[in-house]
C-alpha cells in the first residue's frame, strides 16, 4: 500500500491510498478527522478482505476455491465456504432476474439446454453440483462489484462517512460527500459529462479492443465486437457489475424492465 495525506486548515484530512489487487488497481480517498495511523490500519483491513476474496474467487489461481469447484463439482457435490455459497447464490438470482443475460457459466465448453441451470446449490448442505460436464464458472465479471460491496460494509461498521473507492476504474463507489460539495463528481468516460454519485456505485463495462475477456452474449455465445463502454449507476456495486453487462446485451425493452427492478440508471 502507498498513501498520502493532506491536512487542511480546518483540521480536515484527506487521505489517499492505492495498491494493486484483484488483478487491477485500488484507489481510496477518505475524508475524515482520524489520524493517519488509524487510516492505514483501516485500509489494511480492506486489503485483507480483498485478499480473502481473491483466494476464493480467482479462477486463474489453481489453489482458489472456485478452481476446486471447477475441477470437482461435476464429479461430486462440493462443500462451499459461506462466502462462496453466498456469491454463487447471488449469481444464480441475478441470472434469473436478467433473463439469463448475466451468466457466470458463459465460458463453459458444454452448451446447456435452454432454462437448464449450470449448477445446483443445496442450501441445507451448503454444496454445489454441476448439471453437466464442461461447466466452468468464472467470477471475473462479478467479483469486483461483490468485493466492493464488502468493503463498503466494513467502512460502515468502522463509521467512515465520506469516502471514494475505486476498483480498477470500472467500479467506483462514492459514499457521503466530497469535502467541498454534495456527493462526488465523476466524469463519464464516453461523453465527458459529470455524474454525481451519492452513496452509489458507477460501473463501466465494455470493449476497448484490448480487453482479455470480452463480453459474450449468452443467447448466441458470440463475443461482442462493438467498441464502446456502458456505465450504470446502482446502489449496490454487485448489481452494477451485473447490469453493466445486461445493458450491453439486452434489447432496449428488456434492459429498461431489468433496470427498473433494480432501481438502476444508465449513464448516457
Amino acid at each position: 500500500m502507498q498513501y498520502q495525506q493532506r491536512i487542511f486548515s480546518d483540521g480536515l484530512k484527506l487521505f489517499y491510498a492505492w495498491f494493486e489487487a484483484l488483478h487491477t488497481r485500488v484507489d481510496l480517498a477518505i475524508c475524515s478527522k482520524i489520524d493517519q495511523d488509524g487510516l492505514v490500519e483501516f485500509v489494511k483491513m480492506l486489503q485483507i478482505e480483498i485478499e480473502k476474496f481473491e483466494l476464493i474467487g480467482n479462477r486463474f489461481d489453481p489453489k482458489s476455491e472456485i478452481s476446486h469447484v471447477n475441477t470437482n463439482a461435476y464429479k461430486s457435490d462440493v462443500v462451499l465456504s459461506n462466502e462462496l455459497f453466498e456469491i454463487l447464490s447471488d449469481c444464480q438470482m441475478y441470472n434469473h432476474k436478467t433473463y439469463g443475460y448475466f451468466d457466470i457459466a458463459i465460458n463453459s465448453t458444454n452448451h446447456l439446454k435452454p432454462k437448464e441451470e449450470a449448477y445446483l446449490l443445496d442450501s441445507q448442505k451448503q454444496t454445489i453440483r454441476f448439471s453437466n460436464s464442461g461447466i466452468l464458472l468464472d467470477l471475473s465479471g462479478f467479483l469486483k462489484g461483490y468485493v466492493l460491496e464488502r468493503l463498503i460494509k466494513i467502512a460502515e461498521n468502522e463509521c467512515y462517512a465520506n469516502l471514494l473507492i475505486n476498483l480498477g476504474n470500472s467500479s467506483i463507489f462514492a459514499k457521503g460527500n466530497h469535502p467541498c460539495g454534495k456527493g462526488w463528481k465523476i466524469q463519464h468516460p464516453e461523453n465527458n459529462s459529470d455524474c454525481v454519485l451519492l452513496n452509489e456505485c458507477l460501473t463501466t463495462s465494455g470493449n476497448n479492443g484490448k480487453t482479455k475477456w470480452p463480453i459474450v452474449n449468452p443467447t448466441d455465445r458470440v463475443a461482442v465486437t462493438t467498441k464502446k463502454s456502458v456505465s450504470v449507476v446502482t446502489k449496490l456495486p454487485a448489481v452494477g457489475e451485473v447490469l453493466s453487462k445486461v445493458a450491453y446485451l439486452a434489447t432496449e425493452n428488456e434492459r429498461d424492465k431489468i433496470f427498473e427492478i433494480f432501481g438502476a440508471r444508465l449513464v448516457k
Binding site: T24, H178, K185, S229
Partner: peptide
C-alpha cells in the same frame, strides 16, 4: 482531488472507464 480540496474546489474526477489491468 487533493489539489482541488486544497483550493476549495468541488472538481470532477476523470478516471472511470473499463478495467485497469497491470
Amino acid at each position: 482531488l487533493m489539489n482541488d480540496v486544497e483550493n476549495a474546489l468541488f472538481g470532477s474526477m476523470t478516471f472511470a472507464g473499463t478495467s485497469w489491468a497491470p
